[in-house]
Simulated assay, not measured.
Amino acid sequence: MSFQAYLNNIQAKTGKSPDEFKSLAEQKGFLQNGKLVPSVKATDVTNWLKDEFQLGHGHCMAIWALFKGKTD
């Protein structure tokens, strides 16, 4: 599955776009000015996404990659 397909599936499941996830992550303190806060670990983000959005691990890691700057 391509990275974009993961993002499309996440949006279909949650109703949230990648930009909306970035905004939510800023509110949670995971991102600052669009960049990952150095102390934030992948587990912090994946636990949040699993708990709040019921995403599977692969989809959570796609969001983590998005936060790290992956674009394609």
Rank of each mutant, 00 (worst) to 15 (best):
P18K: 06
P18A: 11
A42V: 13
T71L: 02
T14Y: 02
G56D: 13
M1P: 09
K68C: 12
Q4W: 14
D51Y: 03
K13R: 14
K35H: 13
T71N: 11
G56T: 02
F53S: 02
A12G: 00
P38S: 12
E26L: 13
T46H: 03
F21V: 07
I10P: 00
A5D: 14
G69T: 06
Q27D: 14
S39R: 14
A12L: 10
G56I: 08
V40K: 03
V37I: 12
F67S: 00
I63H: 00
M61N: 11
K13G: 04
A62G: 00
Q11H: 11
K22N: 15
H59G: 07
F21I: 08
I63R: 00
S2F: 09
S2A: 05
S17T: 15
W48C: 07
G58W: 01
K70D: 11
E52I: 04
L7W: 05
E26I: 05
V40P: 01
G15I: 02
L49T: 01
N9T: 06
F3V: 07
W48P: 03
S2C: 04
P18N: 10
A12D: 14
G58D: 08
A42T: 14
Q27K: 14
K16F: 13
Q32N: 15
V37F: 05
L55Q: 00
N33W: 04
N9R: 11
K16A: 06
K13L: 07
K68Q: 15
E26F: 07
L7Q: 10
E52S: 13
K22M: 15
L55K: 00
D72M: 07
T71Q: 10
G56E: 12
L31Q: 05
T71V: 09
W64A: 09
M1C: 06
Q11N: 09
G29T: 08
W48G: 08
L66H: 06
N33V: 04
K35Y: 10
I63K: 00
L31H: 11
N47G: 04
N8R: 14
D72S: 04
W48E: 08
K28T: 10
D19G: 11
D19N: 12
G15W: 06
Q27Y: 01
S23A: 15
Q11L: 02
K22E: 14
L55D: 00
K22G: 08
H57P: 06
F3P: 02
W64Q: 03
L7N: 07
K35P: 02
L31N: 09
K35I: 03
Q4H: 13
A5V: 14
G29Y: 07
Q11S: 11
F53H: 15
T14G: 03
E20Y: 01
F30M: 09
G29W: 05
V40I: 15
G58Y: 08
G34T: 10
K28R: 15
L7C: 06
D51G: 12
N9I: 07
L55H: 00
